[in-house]
Design a protein around this nucleic acid. Structure first.
Lengths: 160, 160
DNA sequence: TCTTAAATAAGAATTATTCTGAGTTTATAG
DNA sequence: CTATAAACTCAGAATAATTCTTATTTAAGA
């Protein structure tokens, strides 16, 4: 139905089609390196996630992709996200009840969530060097950890 | 339908009914101090949560309460948990997709979750003194924060 | 180009949670 | 006490997020 996503994505931004092509190739290579078949839908989901920093839900990604023309089904967005998660290209972020958000930034980092507007913001890993996991009680084998900070973002803090 | 929960809970453990009574009174006082009406169902939900450290889901609590005789409906467990959360007596713990777990330990602490068996364990707050929230970028007003640690618990680590 | 394992789509199914509306219980004032 | 209103409970319907099912399509290697 769809031609390769890398072709169908060429429009949109008016400048830098050259670098967009390069970015598309990078994505293709990344997917292949993880032994994932490069399908238009999977490509689109990953490209969309790489393109934003707002930790969208599956539903938001779906809506975004189908904005102009239908390109992907609900089920496919979910399975694409699962596949990308399984190979470690995206990670799930659990900050609210009920929904699962996704993040293509897999470098270790922490999260801040505004209690008022719900906005999520990354916090650089280096800001919390003090954490010393050696002090964990013996027996637990730590694989990763993450700090969740809640409060008010600047905008909501000013408004209140 | 039920007589006051503090009465109907008296059986069960064979020892220390005296101290159970005291515990029940404490719960009643706690609820009253938060201006919550002390109903058998609400009492039971809170008592159940205080009695365990495994961060159950709403469904698990419901099942537990209705084990012998039906004492509470699904909807009521949910609204009880909401009420308790709203006054700060329990907190939600979000460590997995899809479900919301509850914790009556409201003292600040962190969480460990075993990636293999899903077991959740508390981590004492003092174990991570190093965290310095002053270093957060200005503008964000921090209200609380929590560390989520993932890995293997001793049991699963040994098994693997 | 052929082949085929892997991926997609549409809709049904499942799961967790919330809502609705009617009937109960409880605190409190009279 | 008794009346009253507000708060609470319940069963079942409704909603929302996600997964499953099955037939069809497709990417990519031989």
């Amino acid at each position: 139905m769809l031609k390769m996503a890398r072709k169908s994505r060429a429009s949109g931004s008016s400048v830098e089609n050259g670098s967009m092509e390069k970015q598309a190739d990078r994505i293709v290579q990344t997917l292949k390196s993880k032994k994932l078949r490069v399908t238009p839908q999977r490509f689109a989901v990953y490209a969309n996630l790489l393109d934003r920093t707002d930790h969208p839900t599956a539903e938001q990604i779906l809506h975004d992709l189908n904005q102009n023309a239908p390109t992907s089904s609900q089920a496919t967005v979910y399975t694409s996200l699962q596949a990308l998660r399984d190979v470690g290209l995206v990670r799930e972020v659990l900050l609210e009840e009920g929904v699962c958000r996704y993040d293509a930034n897999i470098a270790p980092h922490h999260h801040f969530r505004c209690k008022s507007c719900g906005k999520i913001e990354d916090i650089a890993w280096e800001q919390f060097q003090g954490i010393d996991l050696q002090r964990l009680r013996s027996g637990l084998k730590v694989e990763d950890y993450e700090l969740t900070v809640r409060g008010l973002c600047d905008r909501c803090d000013r408004a209140s």
